[in-house]
Design a protein around this nucleic acid. Structure first.
Lengths: 338, 338
DNA sequence: GCTGGCACTCACCCGCGTTGAGTGCCAGGC
DNA sequence: GCCTGGCACTCAACGCGGGTGAGTGCCAGC
């Protein structure tokens, strides 16, 4: 195992490299940190750290930079989460408090997170599967054409057109609407399928086809829209990435445009607590020089969706983690209030 | 006025510069185009074009590149719109035909446009003000809490919470719902205000407060949501911008994140036909080295929204304009069908 | 009015020596 | 046994200087 001091050296290297973006040498280290030992000693420690794969030299006769493995150790053992200051917390709350609807909440969150971390922010809309149903509405648009509107407790609205196999009378419609709502209102989406299972049996034979169609559309919506929506922002921060632009930035932008990739990225986060994926730990190749910090948020104790930031592996982990955690907490509060 | 040949020289310069990204000299020009004159003559023409401000030299003893004014002349007088080939048109149609709902249509359009032009694509959601109302729905969530759902003919759905001044009975609700729909269904959003003006008078005194609240929320929605939504894509194409990245790309990314800026950008487009804004013609400073090609699209003869692309001033104007026009046309068709 | 010729400019490339930050290793001291 | 100062070595980065060539403007001649 690495000695206490060597860990301290690694911490110092990460700290300085994140600040300067330049390989850090032994002399500079002893000058900027009170390590209590000479550069020569630090050199020995660095040799050991390099041996173990925590740091690397871009080329001979240059300083060291942390490897993915080095950052991993730093995040796991050496770094805490830097809490937000009181004024910062107030600013977050004020900024989020002005939101008028769900889109606005998500939009504000994304901007806030991008601004706080100076990185790319990704916010997932509250998931359907973990939400509860506030209301199901059925509208008759034409004799054999219905619209299904689904409203969640998080304020999200989904709608679907339905072409009925047969005309559906206004009274049957009202009946179905009432029965549907009495069964599913207030229930979790995940439970809906079995709650409505036997519903067609309550109707006359001529209406059963339509009822079934409506129900299957409803279930479809639950499944399809589980493929979540999300919003991203702060892509301009990518320009602070490094000196060697085109090659670094391009794959990242491409990855960010693919919702599937992003969803997977956030999805990998474990439910409880914060997840940090560093460099190659990200499955997607284009993101091999970025780190992703993500966390779940929700109105109650349970997470209904996730949010996070994407930035260079060389990022301020404690600060970023602090900002992400704080924002997630306040968004949760806002959602709980509405 | 410039002679025919000089215009031809300008056209050749634009063509070559767009292709190579490098200043083009007199010798190369005569070699690649059948101008029928010698380099020396072309040099004289170039001197004249430079005098008039259509082209410029990055530095002495280098070739010429077109100025914004040069591109303007090129677009206005020299370039046509390059029509899509039949296979391209088929591909567009196939790609758009698979869309399942409005979000999907817009999403597909953005991706398609970005891919075709290899630039950043911006697509505005169909505007509310020019749409017609398909249905207005009122749901009772709690004794004194309503939800207003607005459905447009383009498939867009907006919802608002309403806190009523007094409890509102189920029968009053049904009455209001019916009256509202009979008045506004099928009408243009712009006409709604005067259509509902005298509606409170039809109700009992105790309900009038609530009815007024509902109506004012409805009108608010019309106004607020006129602030349109839009979707962008293809930002990764910005990396093909030029060699001098950070400085060029950053302000563009920043501008693209501000919906307001984008909406203004598209909004400037005249209703009929295509608009091309070149370089400094764009009001926004960050976009002074980009051009914007935009056009309205709609389900009928009238435009309900706009779409376009943002790219470097050095872009293939005929090709880009062709792609933008074709996509707009097919999106219009898709919307008309749904 | 077009052309070929000519002198001139200047960004770009290449090779070269200098500089200095940083390293590894080693002998000596606590 | 671990830390330290000293020392030789490496090598990216920088600045300098000459050569190269694309491109220009001008001019005399057809």
């Amino acid at each position: 195992m690495l000695s206490e001091r060597r860990l301290e050296v690694l911490r110092a290297i990460v700290h300085d490299y994140v600040g300067t973006e330049e390989p850090v040498g032994s002399k500079a280290l002893t000058e900027r940190h009170r390590l209590g030992v000479s550069p020569a000693t630090v050199r020995n420690d660095m040799a050991a750290l390099e041996e173990e794969g925590f740091i690397a030299q871009p080329h001979t006769s240059a300083g060291r930079i942390p490897t993915d493995k080095g950052y991993r150790l730093f995040v796991d053992k050496l770094a805490g989460v830097k809490p937000m200051t009181a004024p910062e917390r107030r600013a977050i709350q004020n900024f989020l408090d002005g939101a008028v609807d769900l889109d606005d909440v998500v939009g504000r969150t994304v901007r806030l997170l991008a601004q706080l971390t100076r990185q790319v922010a990704v916010v997932q809309y509250p998931s359907l599967t973990r939400s509860t149903v506030r209301h199901v509405e059925l509208l008759s648009l034409a004799p054999a054409r219905l619209m299904l509107v689904l409203i969640t407790d998080t304020g999200r609205v989904e709608q679907r057109m339905i072409d009925c196999p047969a005309p559906f009378g206004e009274s049957s419609l009202a009946d179905l609407r009432a029965r549907l709502n009495s069964r599913v209102a207030g229930r979790r989406f995940a439970d809906v399928p079995q709650l409505v299972q036997d519903l067609p049996e309550a109707f006359e034979a001529e209406d059963r086809g339509t009822v079934s169609t409506v129900l299957s559309t409803l279930l479809e919506t639950l499944v399809e829209e589980t493929e979540e929506r999300l919003m991203i922002g702060g892509t301009a921060n990518l320009t602070r990435f490094g000196h060697d632009f085109p090659l670094t930035i391009r794959p990242v932008l491409e990855a960010l445009e693919e919702q599937v990739v992003l969803l997977k990225l956030l999805g990998e986060a474990t439910d409880s607590g914060m997840t940090v994926r560093i460099g190659h730990e990200n499955a997607h190749e284009g993101l091999s020089s970025t780190s992703v910090v993500s966390v779940g948020y929700g109105s109650g104790s349970e997470a209904v969706a996730k949010l996070g930031v994407v930035g260079p592996t060389r990022m301020d982990y404690p600060g970023t983690m602090g900002a992400v955690r704080a924002v997630a907490r306040y968004v949760g509060q806002i959602l709980a209030e509405s």
